[in-house]
Amino acid sequence: MDNVTAYLEASLAGVPASEALSQYKLKMTDVLSDRADELTHSGLRDQKVLMDLLKSEYPDLRADFEAAQTQPKKARGIEHGRLLGIACTAIYFIAVGILYVTVSLLTHRWSLTWLLPAAGVTLWLEWLFGLRIEKLVAKRRVFHPTARTLLAIGVLLLFLFAFLCSAFLFRMPRSWLLLLWGVIAMLLADAAFGLALREKLMILNILVYIPVLAALVFLVLGLHGILPWTPSWVLMPAALLLDLAIIAVRLLRHKKEETEQEVADAWSAD
């Protein structure tokens, strides 16, 4: 304990005394003492080695303290931003609620006006997903699958709202086909997003998406009556052929790169 205090005092010597410094010292005394207890429990009896090990784990307490001082400002900024976001969301939903009640009372078409809050919720979710996707994309690659999942959900939500409008507002026949269009759009969006992000092994996703998309397009266009069933089934084998062509091109390109590397090696060997 004395050693820990001495190390803390020596490391933070020259830092102007403040409430923050006192609190930091108290916090670090606990952290270092707990760690020292842990090492003693493991069987480390030599106090000099124990302190050296602690010092190697916490080599620059001064820099750590200074970094900790800037963090509360950042944390306060984040907290303010969060509160503002919550307030704006509340105002938005109140506005949507007022709009819904007003329009409903004026038109007396309660069976349709519920689409207004549905539109409000969809818009809010899309905005929320957009913000989250932007943050996730800026992070490491490991977060990209979550961003892609959010994008897929976002696209599906848009088509779900379009389906609700089509079915209840416009009463269009076969409105449910919009849900299938949603899946098609979701796959296309994911492929484009993955390629834009230069995701590793995206080609494998695309190889899977192509036949699935072909089958969906065949089904949807057939159900819409835009394409006759009989010749358009060709879409599916064509998709498989396209897959094979992509594989062949990739293999050829890979082979070419290998050959170029061998040639480069042969030159550099000389």
Binding site: L39, S42, G43, L44, R45, D46, V49, L53
Partner: peptide, 13 residues
């Protein structure tokens, strides 16, 4: 042995 234990603890850490 005591020295060996000390060295090994450091390695484990």
């Amino acid at each position: 042995v005591e020295a060996l234990r000390t060295v090994l603890i450091c390695f484990f850490e």
